[in-house]
Computed example of a mutant assay.
Amino acid sequence: MRTPHDVQVREAHAQLTELLAEVATPSTVWDEPLVSAPWGFRTKAKMMVRGTAAAPVFSFPGSHEGVDLADCPLYPPLVTEVVESARALIRRAQVPPYNLDKRRGEIKYVLVTATPTEAMVRLVLRSTSALERIREHLALLDPRVSVVSANIHPEHEALIEGTEEIHLAGADRLRLPLGNIDVDVLPRSFTQTNTAVASELYAQVARWILDAGARTAWDLYCGVGGFALGIAHEARARGAHMDITGIEITNEAIESAQGSAKRHGFAGAVGPHTAPEAHVRVRFETADATDWARRQATLPDAIVVNPPRRGIGEALSRYLNDSGVRTIAYSSCNPETLAADLARMPHYRVARARLIDMFPHSTHNEALVLLSRVAPEND
């Protein structure tokens, strides 16, 4: 954090160009980095609860015991204020923080996801024993909290949350604005931490896909549907035909995406705001991305992949390399696995590349590349 933000971005851009040197070509267009605001950009907080019920301490996993980080300047004011209201709830309800060494206590984490005007709070608990006290004092939460749930995580393990979610108050989902679209976020749905940068990321990919002339697309590892819905919005704005399928292995993410598509008028039919000459349809399905892609009888004009840090891996890389699909947009949260995946795809060239400054003041950077088909001699 002592390094000026602009210097961080320049150094990260240089590292990315060096990492992709073997797969880029002289014709590769390096777009200007997508730069985040330096402060107040984290719209999600994952606070480990330590200390005592009378004096709870909020920190990050792996940080020093006793150091409270609830006022970290990476968070916007709404997140900070919601976290402080959760602290008041813990004190009043007398919910003891979980002690890792003694394996005693109840509350493990407070998880917050915020829009510019409202927030979702999830309390990760060891058991249901404190729920009655928590429900009694929910009014202490900031009035802008519109969704409250408890996640039950009885195991003593490194995972932040468990599989059981109990709705406590408010709506069952948060509506998260992402530029020209908004997505439904259920409690266990994954969303990007930096909403402002994610919004431009989705819009950038949509422009690339439509500029390539695609009329059918797959969004693999689609999460809550940001890329698919962004493409759909761009197609509708241009009066273009577009048929998009999003694939994600998590049921809750697909439920979120389906709700968003229906609300925007994209689910399976022409939407109410679609231009008369356009037909924009989006569908989402729960499946493993690689297995699903291999089963398809026909291929789309374009594919978007947005895998976890491990990348798309050898199987999907080889499949895409041999597929013949004209255009692929690869959004990567780990440039090293991106480089490894691209090395297995010689039938494609890196047409465009862009550094994504998703996490300022850290060594973690993301990247976006547009791949164009280079037909082999016998293709």
Rank of each mutant, 00 (worst) to 15 (best):
I166W: 01
S199I: 15
E165A: 04
H156D: 10
N151E: 09
F190Q: 11
E165K: 03
T216S: 15
T193V: 12
R215Y: 08
N151S: 05
V197K: 10
G179N: 07
N180Q: 12
L138C: 15
S149G: 08
W208H: 01
G179I: 02
A150W: 02
L159G: 11
T216N: 00
W208C: 01
A196S: 13
L140W: 11
A158W: 09
G179T: 01
H156T: 13
A203D: 04
V197T: 11
V147W: 00
D182K: 13
L168E: 08
V224G: 06
S199Y: 03
C222A: 08
P187N: 05
A206K: 00
L159V: 06
D211H: 12
W208L: 00
A217L: 03
G223Q: 13
Y221W: 11
A198D: 01
V185Q: 10
E155A: 14
N151G: 10
I166H: 03
I152N: 03
I209K: 06
V183K: 04
V147S: 00
F190E: 00
H156L: 09
V197C: 10
A198P: 08
A150T: 06
R173V: 09
Y202L: 14
I152M: 05
S149H: 05
D219Q: 01
Q204A: 15
T193P: 14
L168R: 09
I160W: 07
V145E: 08
T195M: 06
L178P: 02
A203W: 03
L176K: 02
I160V: 13
L159K: 13
Y202I: 14
V145N: 06
E165I: 06
E200S: 10
P143H: 03
Y221K: 00
S189A: 04
D219C: 02
R188N: 07
L201N: 07
P143A: 05
V205E: 04
E161Y: 06
A212P: 10
H137I: 11
R144E: 12
R215H: 12
A198G: 09
H156N: 10
D172E: 09
L178Q: 08
G223E: 03
T163C: 07
R215E: 14
G223K: 05
A206G: 00
A212F: 08
P187F: 02
E155H: 11
V224E: 06
H153T: 14
T163V: 07
R144P: 00
E157F: 08
Y221G: 05
E165Q: 05
A169P: 07
E157T: 13
D184Y: 02
L140A: 15
Q204V: 13
G226V: 01
G225Y: 08
A139Y: 09
W218Y: 14
A203Q: 11
R188E: 07
D142K: 15
Y221S: 13
R144C: 10
R144K: 14
D219Y: 02
D219I: 04
I166P: 01
D142G: 15
Q204F: 10
E200W: 11
A206E: 03
V224Y: 03
A169S: 08
S146V: 14
E200G: 13
I181G: 01
L201Q: 13
G213H: 07
V183I: 07
E165N: 02
Y202K: 05
A206P: 01
T195Q: 12
V224M: 10
T195D: 11
G213M: 11
E200Q: 15
A196L: 06
Y221C: 12
V145L: 04
I209D: 01
D142S: 14
P154W: 05
V224I: 10
E157H: 10
R173W: 04
A158N: 09
A217Q: 04
A169G: 00
